[in-house]
Design a binder for these strands. Structure first.
Lengths: 110, 110
DNA sequence: CTGTCATATGAGTCTCCATTCATTTGAATC
DNA sequence: GATTCAAATGAATGGAGACTCATATGACAG
């Protein structure tokens, strides 16, 4: 059975591999990566993120939307402001593994 | 010091975050993801991959190039054929973590 | 209920990149 | 050397998506 859509099985189907690629696509943008990294330190509101990354509020909102759709971040309203925070421990692990790969890759470079 | 380019430090600089996003961009394509997944089982030559994924040899070669540039796969010539293989254990971990995230995300979906 | 601050969203633009197609390089066999 | 099979590469094209700009929604203060 390679046709499973998230059965209990550990073997991804072709469709799963597509979803997987779509997930990593979310990590594959500098702005979103910077947002995720910022949120590693703790929750932040939209304007704080925009300020930290020196980008427009609109650009940040658009990217937060993508992160939220993929359940990587969550949000809660606090008065006029909206706080965003990481939803998932995998985020830390995935970023960490990516970073380790980068470090090793650099070592091997002559 | 947030300016380090792969120092021994564990804290990525802005440039590192960009490199990190670029790395995940490589995982963020269905074709490349399918190639990596195929290679999890063991080394394969270009034509075998092309056949397995039902895509042209050219398309596969182009994507293998991207994977190779990022040191995710290596290659060795064997006669007329060229075998490709995974270079890095992080690949397995990263894909695994991504998949776990997907599974959890599905659970939470009503 | 009006203004203001914070955020979300839609349309449009511009850039990037995955694939195709045509061609080249490379190795083996004759 | 010529042919053939495998792979790499370059140019061109089509589509996706990141940002901008303008506008809408939402919450609070007065």
């Amino acid at each position: 059975m390679t046709e499973s859509k998230y059965t209990d099985s550990r073997t991804p189907s072709q469709e799963d591999l597509c979803d997987l690629a779509d997930l990593f696509k979310v990590f594959g943008d500098t702005t979103r990566m910077r947002i995720l990294y910022a949120l590693l330190q703790g929750p932040l509101c939209v304007c704080a993120i925009a300020e930290a990354l020196d980008m427009t509020q609109s650009a940040i909102s658009h990217q937060l939307r993508a992160l939220k759709l993929n359940k990587l971040v969550g949000s809660r309203r606090e008065g006029k402001t909206v706080m965003y925070f990481l939803l998932d421990d995998h985020v830390k692990t995935i970023i960490g593994q990516g970073y380790e790969h980068l470090m090793e890759r650099e070592e091997k470079r002559k």
